[in-house]
C-alpha cells in the first residue's frame, strides 16, 4: 500500500502555467525592491551560533527565565510561559482537560505566535470553538513592552473569532489566580461569579467552560439572561465585560 500511495501522489504536480503565474505575481509584488546581499544572510547562521555560544557560556538564565505568560481558557485551561526571546519555555495544564491537551502538544521553544496558533488549531480546541465555546486569552508579565507586543499579537491571532477575548493582566493578579489553582481567565470569571453567588468555589470553576461561566454570570446578573447562540463582545454582567485587549483594571 505504501508504494501505491507514493505513486499516486507522484502523479500530482504543479503545472508550468501555475508556476509562471506565480513568478509573474512575485515579479509584480516585488518590483523595485532590491535583493538583500547574499552575504548578509550567510552571516545569519554565524550570528546564531555566536548567540548560542553566548547563551551556553553563562547567560543561559537569560533564556530560561520566563518573562511573560499567556493563559488560554476554553475549558481546557493552559498556561504558556514565555522567555524574553519570545520562545515558549513550558506549557502547563490547569485542569484535567488542560493537562491532556498540554501532553498532546510539543511546542516548547517555539515562537509564541506559532505555538498559540498550533494550540488553537489543535483538534480539541478547534472543535470546541467551532461549537461556540468562548476563548479567553490573558497576557501577563513583568516586561510591559513585551506584554504589549504579545497582547497585540494575540489580538491579531484571534481577530475574526467572534467568541474570543484578549486581556492583559498584572503579574500579581496572575499569582493570585495561580494560588487558587486557576488560570487568570478563569480567576476573573470566578471573581465575577462569586460577587453574584458567594457559594461558588474555585474547584467548581476550574472544570467549567468559559461559556458556562459566562452564561451563569449573565443568568445571575440583575436582569441578565444567558444567551443561547454564539456571543458577540457583550459584557458578562456585573462589570465583567471588556473590550478586546482591555487592560486589567
Amino acid at each position: 500500500m505504501d508504494e501505491r500511495i507514493r505513486e499516486a501522489f507522484q502523479q500530482v504536480r504543479a503545472g508550468e502555467a501555475l508556476k509562471q503565474r506565480t513568478r509573474a505575481y512575485l515579479a509584480q509584488r516585488t518590483r523595485g525592491r532590491p535583493a538583500a546581499p547574499a552575504g548578509r544572510r550567510r552571516l545569519a547562521p554565524v550570528l546564531a551560533c555566536l548567540l548560542v555560544m553566548a547563551v551556553l557560556g553563562g547567560g543561559s538564565w537569560l533564556y530560561f527565565v520566563p518573562t511573560a505568560s499567556i493563559d488560554i481558557d476554553v475549558n481546557p485551561s493552559l498556561e504558556l510561559r514565555i522567555n524574553r526571546f519570545d520562545r515558549v519555555l513550558s506549557v502547563e495544564g490547569y485542569n484535567d482537560d488542560g493537562r491532556e491537551l498540554a501532553d498532546s502538544l510539543d511546542v516548547t521553544f517555539w515562537d509564541y505566535n506559532d505555538a498559540v496558533e498550533a494550540i488553537l488549531e489543535s483538534d480539541t480546541l478547534s472543535a470546541l470553538l467551532a461549537g461556540g465555546e468562548v476563548l479567553t486569552i490573558t497576557v501577563a508579565g513583568s516586561d510591559q513592552v513585551q506584554c504589549g507586543k504579545i497582547l497585540s499579537d494575540m489580538e491579531s491571532c484571534t481577530a475574526g473569532r467572534q467568541n474570543a477575548r484578549c486581556y492583559a493582566a498584572a503579574a500579581d493578579d496572575v499569582a493570585a489566580a495561580h494560588d487558587l489553582g486557576l488560570t487568570y481567565g478563569k480567576y476573573r470569571a470566578y471573581l465575577a461569579l462569586r460577587a453574584l453567588d458567594p457559594d461558588v468555589t474555585p474547584e467548581e470553576v476550574r472544570d467549567m467552560t468559559m461559556r458556562e461561566l459566562r452564561d451563569r454570570i449573565l443568568t445571575l446578573s440583575p436582569g441578565g439572561e444567558a444567551e443561547s447562540g454564539a456571543s458577540g463582545h457583550h459584557g458578562w454582567g456585573g462589570g465583567y465585560g471588556h473590550r478586546w485587549g482591555a487592560a486589567t483594571p
Binding site: F9, V12, R13, A14, L18, K19, T22, R23, L26, A27, T30, R33, P34, A35, A36, A38
Partner: peptide, 20 residues
C-alpha cells in the same frame, strides 16, 4: 529580499510539494 534566481530555484524545487 531574495534574488530572482533563488526564487526560481525554490519554485522548481518545491512547487510540486506545495501543490500536493
Amino acid at each position: 529580499m531574495r534574488s530572482e534566481q533563488e526564487v526560481d530555484t525554490a519554485i522548481e524545487r518545491y512547487a510540486d510539494m506545495v501543490r500536493r
